[in-house]
């Protein structure tokens, strides 16, 4: 030992520097650099060209479609996620483990398979295909199919975030509220919801980011109709294959910006409510 005092729970300085450099280098090489290249390619022909690629009608329709699909899928999954977490954490019932396992299913199934499931159910050769067609209801290759596929892949985000949190918090506060005469609904609104609000917001942000970015499942059910059923990620692919690299990277940059915005929002939340969040993320 060198005569110097060394905190026994701390690694040597050199090791700490080395590990930090590895981590930073890795992040820079595999995350920051590619992201920078996306923006560089988008601006290769100037800001005007990139902007033109984003406000072009097909691109705008892709942006609208993505926002609409996320706008429907995220609230539905939020409601579902809270109900599922509430049921799992605060109640005992048989089949609970099966429910928890099922919630995880979309994480383990490849998105392409999730898309194909809907083709098998709603496709013309599928179970409901001819019935839907006879009644002029379009699910596959239209907005409802895209929304369903998005819901499927983003289904676990909210529930997965809330279940451990709510299990951790236990039932004591709710039981106290009920025993003091509060109704189930007001117990939920005034006790449970305030306890989970930051975790919920965090989960919704993640869910939203994934909903906007989903490619595989949506690709299967979209039909790839230019200006109609192409979401932003699909539009990026289309432009790239059309030799329109500036356009492809401009839309990709917009998508990345939306994701970064989510990240910034999340960081502000964490910074502003650091203590509360730390208390919630013990698990």
């Amino acid at each position: 030992m060198s005569g110097k005092f060394q905190n026994p729970t701390q690694d040597p300085l050199l090791l700490r520097i080395f590990l930090s450099l590895v981590a930073i280098g890795f992040v820079a090489l595999f995350l920051v650099l590619p992201l920078l290249i996306v923006f560089k390619e988008a601006l290769a022909d100037g800001l005007g060209k990139a902007f033109a690629a984003i406000i072009e009608p097909d691109a705008l329709s892709a942006v609208k479609l993505s926002l609409l699909a996320a706008g429907i899928a995220v609230p539905l999954n939020t409601v579902f996620g809270i109900s599922a977490a509430w049921a799992v954490a605060k109640h005992d019932f048989s089949g609970k483990t099966i429910l928890v396992t099922l919630i995880d299913l979309p994480f383990s199934v490849s998105p392409v398979v999730s898309g194909l499931i809907y083709v098998l159910v709603f496709g013309l050769q599928g179970w409901f295909g001819s019935y839907l067609l006879d009644h002029d209801i379009h699910i596959l290759f239209a907005l409802p199919g895209i929304v369903l596929a998005t819901i499927f892949v983003t289904f676990p985000f909210v529930a997965r975030e809330l279940i451990p949190l709510m299990v951790d918090q236990g039932r004591d506060e709710e039981e106290a509220a009920i025993s003091l005469g509060a109704s189930g609904f007001s117990t939920f609104c005034r006790v449970t919801l305030p306890n989970i609000k930051w975790g919920l917001l965090y989960a919704v942000l993640l869910c939203n980011a994934r909903a906007l970015g989903e490619f595989g499942a949506v690709s299967v059910v979209s039909g790839h109709i230019r200006g109609q059923t192409n979401t932003m990620p699909l539009h990026v692919e289309l432009l790239y294959n059309n030799y329109d690299y500036v356009g492809a990277f401009a839309v990709a940059a917009l998508l990345a910006l939306l994701a970064l915005l989510t990240l910034v929002f999340k960081t502000i939340l964490e910074w502003r409510y650091a203590d509360e969040l730390a208390a919630m993320h013990r698990h």
């Binding site: 083709v119 709603f122 496709g123 013309l124 050769q125 599928g126 295909g129 067609l133 379009h138 596959l140 290759f141 039909g223 790839h224 109709i225 230019r226 200006g227 109609q228 289309l238 294959n241």
Partner: peptide
């Protein structure tokens, strides 16, 4: 005229599955 492009076999499959 709206178009949907893809591999020829994949496009045939989409029409079979109900692409309008």
């Amino acid at each position: 005229l709206n178009t949907s492009n893809g591999g020829s076999g994949a496009q045939a499959r989409a029409v079979i599955d109900g692409l309008q």
